[in-house]
Each structure stands twice: as structure tokens, then as C-alpha cells.
């Protein structure tokens, strides 16, 4: 596991009056061997925590961009084991916390117990599985919760407020607030209700809250970051990687960092 915990990374941001910048990338995209290089670029251009996607053949919570990066990655021959190996290499020279982002089935097939142990040994700090909502599988959830990895929980606009504390209590690191109903992907505009929703979620839980889904510009990141403790950017980043490789992705992340840190 990283020397810096996810909580410590958020704490450091808070102390600096910043919102955490959390980029998402799909491992093995655009090429099987590009993962470490892309992770390095993110770490060097303003990321505080990184979500590293382990691709799944049926990413039903993802929009077209991450579907495509997942399919390309699988065609490139990416495996769970391969992603953990990439992480191990990256961890030798960086201590930025990594959250593994995936679906349940690849983890189940690998074996949950082995996966948790191997992911920790490779240097992962947290685990997010989009198809394991709170309460869906108490035995499995508790094995993740009692492991050294933080279980990153998600809350959606459709989550009743009285369910939020229960969802959050099983998680650690940060709580992920989904900015709108829907799948991952860029949107031209954030919902007007977002600020109010975030404020009530934050008062209901005792951990940092990051917001993601649909954040694709510096302006949106700044607006979300003004209320949230962290901002997740995925599809828009993948699109820059697709268009202009690591150089353009680095530039894009720098622009997000600047937008987040600009005094409002």
C-alpha cells in the first residue's frame, strides 16, 4: 500500500485550501504498455489520488468513452494480473494513492481474498466496484471493509438521504457522489441542484466527498470543487489521451488543476 493514505491526501488538500483532483484512466489504454507512463504523467501534473480502471467486458455503468477504452484495453490483452503488475512498477517511484476501479466479476474470478492481498501488495490504496452497492452482499462487502484497502462507496442523486449514512459507514477514504443519474461521460453542463445536494451529503457523513460523472472542463471542475472535497475526471481525460496522447492529457490535467486552485 502507498505510504500516503487516501485520507491523508484529502487532508493535505484541505490544509492547502484545495479540492483534490482525481483523474480516472483505464489500465492498458491506449496501449498495453502505456499504463505506467500515463500514471506518471497524471502524478506529475496535479493529481492527488488516481483511479485506475481494470477493464471489464460489460461496463454497464460506463458511457461510450470508457466503454471504448475498456474494449481497446481488453483487445490489447490487459488482465487483472497485468494491471497489478503495472501498479507495482509505478509504486516503485511514486507514492500517490491509487484506487482500483472495476466491476465485481473480474475480482470474483481472480478470487476476492487473493485479489485484496495482491492489490495491497502491489500498492493499491482503495477499491471501487460500481456493481457492488451497499447492502448487496454483506459477507463480501465486509471482507473488503476489513481489508487494508479503502472501500470507496458511491452515492447517487436517487439515493434517499436516510440511506446515505449507512452507505458511507461501510466505506472509507472518501465518498463518491455521482453528479447525475446516468453513466460516465462528458456533459456540457452540471445540474443546478448539485450544490445543494453536495452540501446535504457532506453534512450527513464524516468523510471527504468527491464528485464525479460528467465533469469535463476546468469551469465545471472549479464549480464542483467549490463545494466538494474532490473532483473526479474520467471520460474527458480519456478523450484527450485518445486525441493527443500523454502530452495532451498532461496539459488537460494541468488546466484542471489551475482551474481548481484559482481563488473563487
Amino acid at each position: 500500500m502507498s505510504d500516503i493514505s487516501i485520507s491523508a491526501a484529502f487532508e493535505a488538500c484541505r490544509a492547502n485550501g484545495q479540492s483534490a483532483l482525481i483523474p480516472y484512466i483505464t489500465a492498458g489504454y491506449p496501449t498495453r504498455t502505456s499504463t505506467v507512463q500515463v500514471l506518471d504523467a497524471l502524478a506529475n501534473h496535479g493529481a492527488d489520488v488516481i483511479e485506475l480502471g481494470i477493464p471489464f467486458s460489460d461496463p454497464l455503468a460506463d458511457g461510450p468513452t470508457i466503454q471504448k477504452s475498456s474494449f481497446v484495453s481488453l483487445e490489447n490483452g490487459t488482465t487483472v494480473e497485468g494491471v497489478l503488475e503495472d501498479l507495482r512498477v509505478f509504486r516503485k517511484h511514486s507514492d500517490i494513492p491509487i484506487v482500483l476501479f472495476t466491476y465485481l466479476n473480474p475480482v470474483l474470478r481472480y478470487g476476492l481474498t487473493s485479489f485484496l492481498a495482491d492489490a495491497e501488495a502491489a500498492g493499491a490504496s482503495g477499491l471501487l466496484m460500481t456493481d457492488l452497492p451497499s447492502g448487496s452482499d454483506p459477507e463480501l462487502e465486509s471482507e473488503v471493509i476489513t481489508s487494508p484497502l479503502d472501500l470507496i462507496r458511491l452515492v447517487a442523486p436517487t439515493t434517499p438521504l436516510n440511506r446515505v449514512p449507512g452507505v458511507a459507514s461501510g466505506g472509507s477514504g472518501f465518498l463518491y457522489y455521482i453528479s447525475r443519474t446516468g453513466v460516465t461521460g462528458t456533459r456540457s453542463k452540471l445540474r443546478d441542484e448539485l450544490e445543494g445536494e453536495l452540501t446535504s451529503i457532506k453534512s450527513a457523513v464524516g468523510m471527504p466527498v468527491a464528485v464525479g460523472f460528467g465533469i469535463s472542463t476546468g469551469e465545471q471542475a472549479a464549480a464542483a470543487g467549490a463545494v466538494a472535497d474532490g473532483v473526479v475526471v474520467g471520460s474527458a481525460l480519456i478523450q484527450t489521451l485518445e486525441r493527443g496522447g500523454v502530452a495532451e492529457a498532461s496539459q488537460f490535467l494541468t488546466s484542471l488543476r489551475l482551474a481548481l486552485d484559482r481563488p473563487s
Binding site: L154, V155, P157, T159
Partner: peptide, 12 residues
């Protein structure tokens, strides 16, 4: 069986 779905669908 079970309910292995994104959180967004739980209320529905």
C-alpha cells in the same frame, strides 16, 4: 441472484 447494480438503481 442478488442486486449487483449501480447505486443509482437501488431506489427504483
Amino acid at each position: 441472484g442478488g442486486r449487483y447494480v449501480p447505486e443509482t438503481l437501488i431506489r427504483a
